[in-house]
Design a protein around this nucleic acid. Sequence first.
RNA 1: GUGAGUGUAGCUCAAGGGUAGAGUAUCGGUCUGUGGAACCGAAUGUUGGGGGUUCAAAUCCCCUCACUCACCCCA
Length: 416
Amino acid sequence: MKRIIAPKGTKDIFPPEIAKWHYLEEKLRDYFPRFMYKEIRTPIFEHIELFQRGIGTETEVVQKEMYTFKDKANRDLTLRPENTASVVRAAIENDLFNRVYPLRFFYIGPMFRYDKPQKGRFRQFHQFGVEVFGDESAQVDAEVIYSSYDFLKEINVRDIQLHLNSVGCENCRPNFLKHLRTESEKRMKELCVDCQKKIYTNPLRIFDCKNLKCIEISNDFPKIIDYLCKECGTHFEEVKEALSIFKIKFNLNPRLVRGLDYYTKTAFEITSSQLGAQDALLGGGRYNNLIKELGGADISGMGFAAGIERIILQLDDVKHKKDKMIFIAYQSLPLMNKAIQLAKSLWDKGYCVYVDYNLKNLKKQLKKANKIGIDYTFIIGEDEIVNESISIKSMKNYEQITIKQEELDKWLINNI
RNA sequence: GUGAGUGUAGCUCAAGGGUAGAGUAUCGGUCUGUGGAACCGAAUGUUGGGGGUUCAAAUCCCCUCACUCACCCCA
């Protein structure tokens, strides 16, 4: 029979890796509420239009990478490739803008993109992120950037770099793009084939090219920060100033562009020098037109999204947080029912207990207990039944004591 | 979507045309009221799948699938 395997680009997560996920999730739910973020959960699939309008029809994500399908009523639905558009949609739909203050949300969950898998890239992958609505201050940009950076530090991710740029707004970007296009056309023949196409489709992306020759040439190209309008320029200066208050270092990176069309002004990315080609742990920025474009009020947004799989790759081993485990061993099969009775009473009290119903002798049970990493083995034998006692063996140091059954609760409180 | 590398036991890997093997894990025994060791023994495979060459293919050739990494894209 043919084995059924997980679909390409998906994977199972189980111990010991799952401990890292738990660790990350716990830290996340502890950390971001400090900044007044509240968790929001949105559907995993949405109408395709949400992403077309939100992310932009010209982006790679929308054009090539979405999992889109029709449901039985012929609706066009898409497995969400990112979460910002959904959060905005949810906020508009539920009129959260009039109810919840401050307007800050964080999310965590699976996203889907039809990409070719490689290190740090999956078709079902997981992101967490935050969104701040209705705050146009440069200081909030700095705070969001700080919190994302500091969170990575907090969970001990090392060798990370913060890259910062401004991508301008609808007032200054067109002018910049015009200049960029003219300049790149002049040196078109020297650029790689892909970049030649980008001149007309999305010239900003030329800065993304990893071809050394292209990098060299595009270094001479106009930089967006030199073309920012007064408002964007001032905003960017203020962001940098505010970042210095938070005392974090950043690289000004004029080549940094974002792949989703909704970004305006501040754009940032945190990379790890220890990852492979997919080195962006987290990225985000300001999006001042998205809410309006999705039919909401004319209010601004700022946020980031982080790739959990990539962060997990950079996490040191996390010990599985576990309660002390008790193994109940019976001397012989007829005593198994007594063991079950004892186990039930312990489960009822909330303890972590294991009984093996298949091992007939004590030796094997102890061996198994040892292998599982049990802390204490309770032994029930004929002597114990007669004396109404329980023998308790510490699996860590070989010591064994026998106590009366009525002393068990006291023992549990002191030792477990 | 393009390219490269790799597919052999649950796991890590040998065998490079001539009987598919080791380590480890698993199970049993030495040891029927006492675990971490040791020793002895057992079980485990359509060599990813299909086709071809050959007296003979894990090994050579073709196709296909999967995984990995890179391009691309992004988190």
